[in-house]
Simulated scan of single mutants.
Amino acid sequence: MKTTLSKIATSQSTDMVVAKLLAPLRMNQFGRSIAHTNAPKALLSPAQQMKGIQTVQTRYSAAQPVTRKSYKAKQNSQRNMHQMVLPQAEFEHTFFPGTGISFSLPKTRHTEIPYVDCEVAEMSEMREIVQYMCKHFLRREPLLNALKVTAEEAESFVEFHVKDALQDGASFVARDDEGEICGVRLNAVGPAPEMGKDVELSPKLRTLKKFLEHTDSFVPQSLQGARMRHIAICVNRNMARSGLATMMMKRSVEYSKRHRLRHMVAMCSGNMATGLALKMGFRLVKEIPYTKYIDPTQSIGYEEDQNWVIPHKPFLSLAETHVSAKVMVRNV
């Protein structure tokens, strides 16, 4: 390598030497060099150029034999480097001080909130709200997504909760300038009612029902009285991050103050809901990791040799993205 450098240096100028050394290199956003055959010198800063030269000298200063172990290490290094240079504009890391909660939220363009009419949801709108929630909410709610619940099997389940939310006049519906629903905030007052046997539930929804009962058991007894339960919130995709969800949450807070409710309780199954709750002043009461929750109604199978039941973890697929379900409380 030294002989090659000396030949190049004697025959050509310093700039040409640097250009030839940096030709197979490209710097990513982390300042690391990765293989690239057409990397123009003009794209690199002087510091990056020097780092590239140091990288070349380090890489080729000592010829080492290629063993199976070093080959695998090189492959892993290239794989990790390939992952690091993926576009970072798709996600933003969010950390809430004092809570210990940290996660990545999808970056979406902040759009100005269009004209919407946000009013108290009436019982006469129940059918329309149920259809809206089945169409827009089911696809984006993490628990329902993990269970792969279809709109057909979820309709009676959604109708039960919508009817419960509309009885107290604590829910809100937003409509655009054409009168179409573009957002729904479902709230209820007091403890959750028992779901009757007339509500037909599939095995998937029975699993969801058990999980909701499990999370509700962590609400302190002191909050079981005059409290607002946040059931669900959903806005159109084209209005995400526009302020519509925050506006409906503020209307919920105003309702709680007006009716002298002391607490607001929410179960947040995903990052977006958690971020909105923390933004509105909710605090974390209990965290239920998806890796640890076991469905008490089902099991994957039974091993006769070991004489034990294989537990069923229905929300394990959410562990990497959303980590856990969170019981949140806000004092009014």
Rank of each mutant, 00 (worst) to 15 (best):
Q298G: 00
H136E: 14
M272N: 13
D295V: 02
W308G: 05
T14G: 13
I231D: 01
R330V: 06
C134E: 03
F103R: 06
A47S: 11
R283Q: 08
R237T: 06
R79Q: 12
S45G: 05
E159H: 10
T215V: 15
F172K: 02
K148S: 09
H263K: 09
E152G: 01
G225H: 13
G270Y: 04
N80A: 15
L138V: 06
M50Q: 07
I101R: 11
Q221M: 15
E112A: 14
E122R: 08
E178H: 07
P24D: 02
T321K: 13
T37W: 12
K51S: 07
Y71M: 12
V158A: 02
H322Q: 07
M248E: 00
M239F: 05
P106D: 09
F91M: 15
K51C: 06
A19I: 09
N76G: 03
R206G: 03
A23V: 10
A165W: 01
H93K: 14
Q29V: 09
E213I: 12
A23L: 15
S317Q: 15
H214A: 14
L44G: 05
Q49M: 08
T55P: 03
R26L: 10
L43W: 08
N187T: 01
M264Y: 10
R206L: 06
L318C: 06
L143D: 06
Q88M: 12
R175C: 00
T55F: 10
S77E: 14
S61H: 10
I113Q: 15
E200F: 03
S104W: 08
H322I: 05
S202D: 00
A121L: 01
A277T: 08
